[in-house]
Design a protein around this nucleic acid. Structure first.
Lengths: 206, 206
DNA sequence: TTTAGCTTGTGAAGAAATTCACAAGATCGT
DNA sequence: ACGATCTTGTGAATTTCTTCACAAGCTAAA
């Protein structure tokens, strides 16, 4: 299959969100132009993005909202439940465990892990906190798909190494540091410091 | 000035982080190749990125770590204190207020705002929580530079509108929704749901 | 059935970002 | 002082991403 750009996948994700709004409002069709307006892009871009996966629209009419939603969910792999573990039971871990958007979209949080014995055995927003030493065993048993890393920056790489060794193939990193992983493991980083610096740059350059 | 790509700014931000590590380890020079290895890019990319702003290296030697750090901080606008307010005193707001990386890099959090009277008057990780009704007046007085939006998705656009009306020119949005703002206002969105969907896509497409 | 009015899907064109490749400097050891 | 060895800075080439532009298809009204 032709390689799909990261930016395309992000836009598909955005389109899906608008479609869900539309669906909730009971509208049945939408044009690429409307989708583009919502997403801050162009109608050509929307159509090109979709064209990588097939042709889902009707000329002269637009796209069926429920049909396109379904297809986008399939494309994005949201047809199934993904099992998630959180590494690091701190403030960010708590905010994520609490975040409704996860469960809503089929991301089920199994457990959180922490190295601090004080935290182990407690709950984090209703999710059990376990000792990091159990990670490998638990992963073998429960087969989580995705690891969310919310440990401090200086522990992030070793935590990722642990996660990779346990056999997990996808990670979402919140530590403000660049992580290195084997090619068959997908890592995405959310770096708030970097975003803020982007704003800082924008503010001084105008 | 030639327009600088977003991706370039993000990389500069990453380079700065490595340089700080290097500085802490007492190393005095670094090559574009080493910087590239850390950042998961190529040496040509590093040199090209820097070349938009001048030439900071010495042929045959590399870059002076302290000098390049200083220059990058200048370029990114980190030479000054940025004043930040947080909109929404929930879990994410708390995690951010608690996050050391902000202060460390010159982002000073002035206050949090919330519409819930229960929360107003309390503290969020040591930061005062104020009523949203005071926003406009406070902004006129305290001149914050950046608004961080951590309200629920369905309130995010109206919160941004408020912030824009008050005169703030930069916002960092954590609500999982696309926001629209005038051209002179820079908005960056951190969308965890989108990142997870990116992982989901990666997992099903291999 | 025909026509007018939309909107899709997609090659081709254009723009933007990345990588190549090498001349030009700088250092170091002899 | 000279040659060997590095590494930068940067036009040019290449690759990737976005936008253009239009034929093709669908609907609705007359």
């Amino acid at each position: 299959m032709k390689r799909i750009a990261d930016s395309t996948v992000r836009r598909l994700s955005a389109y899906l969100r608008f479609l869900e709004d539309f669906e909730a409002r009971g509208l049945s069709t939408i044009s690429s132009d409307e989708l583009a307006r919502q997403g801050g892009t162009t109608s050509a871009q929307v159509r090109k993005d979709l064209s990588f996966f097939g042709s889902f629209g009707k000329r002269g009419l637009g796209y069926s909202v429920p049909e396109l939603s379904t297809r986008l969910r399939e494309i994005l792999g949201l047809g199934r439940e993904w099992r998630v573990i959180i590494l690091g039971a701190g403030k960010i871990g708590a905010a994520l465990a609490h975040y409704e958007g996860f469960r809503q979209r089929g991301f089920q949080i199994l457990a959180a892990y922490d190295s601090n014995p004080e935290k182990v055995g407690r709950k984090l927003e209703g999710i059990p906190v376990r000792g990091i030493a159990h990670l490998e065993r638990d992963v073998a048993k429960e087969k989580p798909d995705i690891a969310v890393i919310t440990v401090p920056a200086d522990a992030a790489q070793q935590t990722l190494d642990l996660v990779v060794r346990a056999g997990i193939k996808a990670a979402l990193n919140f530590a403000p540091t660049q992580l290195h992983a084997p090619a068959d493991v997908t890592v995405k980083t959310v770096n708030m410091a970097m975003e803020l610096e982007g704003l800082s740059f924008a503010l001084v350059n105008r």
